[in-house]
Amino acid sequence: MRQSGRTRIAVDAARAGTESLERRGIDVKGELFRAVLLLCISIGIVMLATLLAYVIVAGWPRLDLSLFTEMPSTRDPNTSGFLPAIVGTLYVMIGVLVTTVPIGVSAAIYLEEYADSSKWYNRLIEVNIQNLAAVPSIVFGILGLAFIVRGPWGLGFVAFAGSLTLMMMVLPTVIIASREAIRGVPSTLRHASLGLGATRWQTVSRQVLPVSLPGILTGTILAMSRAIGETAPLLLVGATTFVRFLPEGLFDGAYSVITVQIFQWAMRPQEEFRTLAAAGSIVLVALLLLMNSVAIWLRNKYSRAY
């Protein structure tokens, strides 16, 4: 079946080839096709440029120091700032980092170095990770609301509830990236180590992990930037509370994050609040661009280590 499908493709291509030999001059259809393709890829780029231009122009008037040092205010948009949201984002992200990295890397090590993929439970884990990666982010918010904020865990609407919710969301990203990094380590290194009488874990911790570290780091940075930019699940786990004070800690008191703050300013009818939202967007996008650049730089730097 498959073979015949491929044969058909090859025959089609061959016929196409002989037809084209008869044609002379400029290949109008071909050029048109190339133009359409170029248009396709340009849409995204033009949109990106427009979006960046828009937020910069719209947010410029408020891109000043008070943006970082002031509390938010619903009355006076001109002196309103993002301070609690910035601190809240920091808290939430620390929580995400300390939970996601150890769990994600451990899971990746298990799946790559220990798991026998012919066992049903290991296959179940793999399928689950693939599926989780595509669950809408807001569903994680629902899970966070039902199990972490309320229910058995009952943390309440605190920053760490946000952290755990985002952790569940970005965990597949970290696992998938770490697995790829670990898989990239040549098996000759593992054999060399095991051949010397090292145990599995000695081999993993002393040879495999150091070599795959840049890849794991790249994946982690990308996952963190995804978590920082995420809004929807946090709407459900408490980040929408209007806070005029700094969060007390990971486990105490209300919190807000930058993205949710942008959302709230954006949804107000007054133009000044839109300006504030755009200014916050500049800061957020700049931060994420920086993180992405670091990740891409890391990847390129180490991609040809072996």
Binding site: L48, L51, Y54, V55, L222, S225, R226, I228, G229, E230, T231, A232, T259, V260, I262, F263, A266, R274, A277, A278, S281, L284, V285, L288, L289, N292
Partner: peptide, 10 residues
């Protein structure tokens, strides 16, 4: 990588 909230604002 652009946050969805920024797309929403846009």
């Amino acid at each position: 990588g652009i946050p969805t909230v920024v797309y929403g604002l846009f």
